[in-house]
């Protein structure tokens, strides 16, 4: 992007980029509304360069957490560090590097898309007024809104409004993007585009925090996930780490059920069950590699007709953690 190049060219040398410093780190973040605890001692950790899928049913405290990160809500206790700096104290230095889409887009209905973006751009002290026009045009084109740029916001469809919100987050080169439900209201084509956009941003080196109810999508693009429920962060880590928490299940198909079961138990697999009808033995895999199970079954003298390992889906994990499916309104 030319705007980024310009900005880079006009800047002085800042402190060196430190990949070890996480993009977001909170410790003991807590917020109450009256007697209700909306966010309870959340230790969020979003590493640099990650695409962090922030999951949780409605009312789980995701949005409250995001609002605290961005300085819209004050925390009752706990600390927030964003891009290596304390928040909200360093808000004015940190937020220019952060693009945000919070709980859907919000713009002035009587202004055009371009005018709305210009309004935000002139409000940003770190935005170069000389490149404002180009950057607005680039942001609009990046979300595919160039054709509707001159239309009044009130005439936008839900999807167009969502795209304009994304464009606002992309007015400046960002080190961190906080996208709350970015695909809300988008058609499948738009959803695919957003997925592509997030990947692109991540490839450029930006850290992205995406909260989404589309689990499949988060699975596709996220490198890390965090799952919230009832104001608590239940699980957090890389996608593989979190998914492996829910144990894989190995299924051995053999007519010699007794031998197979004995072999599995000898290996130390837990929760072994017999399914005589389908001639199958099932057990939780745990730390044992699948090939070791195959070897053990054969060594036990059973005729191995099939062996499958099933890892749980994010959704199963989610339901097992939160006790409910997605989009359950409280």
């Amino acid at each position: 992007m030319t705007a980024a190049a310009t900005a880079a060219a006009t800047t002085t040398q800042g402190p060196p980029y430190d990949a070890v410093v996480p993009a977001i780190r909170t410790t003991g973040l807590t917020r109450r509304f009256g007697s209700q605890v909306a966010v309870s001692a959340v230790d969020l950790l979003v590493p640099r360069g990650a695409v962090y899928g922030f999951l949780g049913p409605n009312g789980s405290g995701k949005t409250t957490t995001i609002r605290m990160l961005l300085g819209l809500l004050a925390a009752d206790s706990g600390e927030i560090e964003m891009l290596g700096q304390p928040m909200p104290d360093a808000l004015a230095q940190v937020l220019p590097r952060v693009g945000a889409l919070i709980e859907g887009p919000a713009f002035h209905p009587y202004l055009t898309g371009t005018a709305n973006l210009r309004r935000l751009d002139v409000s940003d002290a770190t935005a170069n007024p000389a490149t404002s026009k180009e950057r607005i045009a680039a942001a609009l084109s990046r979300v595919g809104l160039t054709a509707a740029a001159g239309k009044k916001y009130r005439n936008y469809s839900l999807g167009m409004k969502q795209r304009l919100g994304l464009a606002a987050a992309l007015l400046q080169p960002r080190d961190l993007l906080v996208l709350d439900e970015p695909t809300n209201g988008l058609d499948p084509q738009g959803t695919r585009e957003v997925r592509h956009l997030v990947r692109e941003l991540a490839q450029d080196g930006a850290t992205v925090l995406v909260s989404s109810h589309l689990l499949a999508e988060v699975e596709q693009i996220a490198t890390h996930i965090g799952i919230m429920s009832g104001g608590e962060l239940l699980r957090q880590g890389t996608l593989t780490e979190v998914l492996s928490d829910g144990d894989a299940v190995v299924t051995v198909t053999t007519p010699d059920l007794g031998e197979a079961l004995e072999a599995l138990l000898l290996l130390g697999l837990a929760d072994a069950t017999l399914d005589r009808e389908h001639q199958q033995v099932q057990a939780r895999l745990g730390e044992i590699p699948a090939e070791a199970v195959a070897q053990a079954v054969i060594n036990a003298g059973a005729r191995l007709r099939g062996l499958t390992v099933e890892r749980p889906h994010l959704e199963d994990l989610f339901v097992s953690l939160t006790g409910e499916g997605f989009d359950v309104l409280r």
């Binding site: 006009t10 800047t11 080196g205």
Partner: peptide, 14 residues
């Protein structure tokens, strides 16, 4: 943009 662009200064100029 490449990863190198993230060497943008931590404090953006006003």
């Amino acid at each position: 943009m490449s990863f190198a662009d993230l060497t943008l200064p931590v404090v953006r100029p006003r």
